[in-house]
Amino acid sequence: MNLVVLENTKKNYRSGEIEVPALKGLNLELEAGKFISFVGPSGSGKTTLLNLIGCLDQPTEGKIFVDGTEVSGMNRKDSAKFRGDKIGFIFQNFNLIPVLTVYENIEYPLIMVQNVPAPERKTRIDQLLAKVGMTDQKDKYPAQLSGGQKQRVAVARALVTQPKIVLADEPTANLDHATAFKVINLMHEMKNEFDASFIFATHDLKVVGEADIVYTMEDGQITKTEKRGE
């Protein structure tokens, strides 16, 4: 079964009086358990596509199914619940909550979104902290961490809810070469470990190099599909 299905999905943005098409009738099927990368120049529609898959935005036309559920047309409350249950997010700017420690940042979605009981929370967080190599830093606040450490925490936070999909928009854009490489490796390991699909929007060739499937986008359309290892 396909994890994500887009049927003739269009997204237009309004800029003053003018409607600007960001996605032009996309038809797409994404398989589960893959490391998928969308590449393309700025304004090609990568982020828009990720926002639609992540139920952060609604398409202007067409249907979107994620894990068998139609998410196009979902109301705010249901889409928030759906995101909390099925989707993890990794952002370019890490987006950790500055007033919470590393441990509390990872714990946040378990308390505020999924209401996971305390003992299970602790098990999951300790396990993830160990996997991302942040156990020693768990009591630090985001401001006390390097960019790479912040992104590792963000990876842990995205995975702690045991999502089906992790969406990552330019996750290595603010990292130096070596750190970016480590973070990509970490995400690769996590994908295998947690059986989650990773979908990236990126310019970074390191990420592209690790992907199982690379979709090239231009002007709101997919112009090239490259499947690795086939």
């Binding site: 928030a80 619940k81 759906f82 995101r83 987006n95 505020m112």
Partner: peptide, 16 residues
């Protein structure tokens, strides 16, 4: 605003 976007995207219900 950005932080609100983050917690909302993670799935925090509007009421929380």
């Amino acid at each position: 605003i950005g932080e609100i976007g983050t917690i909302a995207s993670i799935g925090t219900p509007p009421i929380k």
